[in-house]
Structure formats: structure tokens, C-alpha cells
Amino acid sequence: MANYAMALEYQNCIDCRACEVACKDENEVMLGADKQRIWVGIVEGGETLADVFLNFYPSQCNHCVDAPCVTVCPTGASHFVEGGIVKVDYDMCIICKGCMEACPYDARFVDETRHAVDKCTFCDGRIQEYGTTACSATCPTKVRTFGDLEDPNSDLVKLLENREFFVLKEDEGTMPKLFYLVPQDKEYAKRTLGDVKTHKWSEFKAKYQQATDEQKSQWKKA
């Protein structure tokens, strides 16, 4: 059984936000500037025009192995499905917003048209046919590589084995599954990494595998 995740070549991101629109189309996400399942985080630094800089961090739900949003949900609406994807059952959601509080990544929002909390689903329903998400397919500079962590031949695993990466808010211990690939250019890496810890897949693999295995029995169909 697959365990889906994503590697992000974030140094390619030009903040064109094609991913946001592709996501809205594919998943019929509620309209509205603040209704996005996917986004580009921007960090601006420097003081003057001469030394200003912008860093872009494309992001979305991390589909954490140990997802606090699932743990906290009182009705079970937030749940894991096959592939280790975190989803919300709209019917079961009572919009208590506990998950929104619990999520370290601010990946959730209220969809008033569905009367439920909404979030990225890794395009569940699409990936079975296309093998990749809408955001990944549309990206101009191919920031995203979507794939299965349990398939050693997947493009994703190969990337993780060959490159160092970091995850967001590692200290939260949620085991997030968006892997940000460390840029090869040391100077640029320094500018965009800050003091974040970088890793090799060998450090993560066993830990992630074990936690995922423990969880698989909970995975729902959809």
C-alpha cells in the first residue's frame, strides 16, 4: 500500500501560483482569496532596495504521519485514507475548528459552501488515474515531485536519496511529508534555510516507515 508524499524543489518556485488555480479547478475549491488548499509562502528580508530579498516556499498540507488534526478531531471527520492522505469527511465535520488550531501549518480553512473544514487531499481520485496531483502537473518549473515513499523506484524516493532536505516545523514531531530539497548553491541555501536542520532520507526512512505501518490499520477507503 502506497504512502504518498511530495518533494519540493522550492528553489524553482517563481510564485506564479499556477498551482493554486489548478487546485481550485481540479478540486472545485471554494472561491475566495483566503480559500486555498495550496499556497506560496513568502519571506521578505533586507532593509533597502539594494539588499532586499524574497524567498518562496510553496506549500500545502503536509499529510503528516502523526497528524494532530486527525488526533484532535472530535467526530472523526479528519481521517487518514489509503496512501496516508489526510482528508476531511464533509458530512462528519461540525466546524469546531479544533483541527485548524492543531495544524502547525495552517493548512486548513472553512469552506462555507460545504459547511465543513477543507484542505488538500493530494488530489485523491485524480492521482489514481494520472499518477500525479494537479499542482504538480501544472507547475512551470516542476517544483513538485509527487510519489510513493514505499516505492524505491519512484522519482520521489530517488530524489530523497540523492538530495538533502528539510521539513517544516520538525520539532512539532508530526512527521510531515512535504520534503523541501536543499538548493545546491550554498549561498542561496543559506539565505533560504535559515537555521533549519537538514536531513538525509536514511535518517528518516525507518522512522517514517514504522510510524506509517502502525497506522495503516486506521486508513479508510476515501
Binding site: 467526530t75 482528508k87 458530512d91 462528519m92 477507503k221
Partner: peptide
């Protein structure tokens, strides 16, 4: 985290 709506759990999803 069992469904709050008994039989219909995850039917919508």
C-alpha cells in the same frame, strides 16, 4: 475518532 454519525461514516468522502 470513530464516526459521529454511525453508519454513514466516511460515506460522503
Amino acid at each position: 475518532s470513530s464516526g459521529a454519525f454511525g453508519l454513514s461514516a466516511y460515506e460522503d468522502a
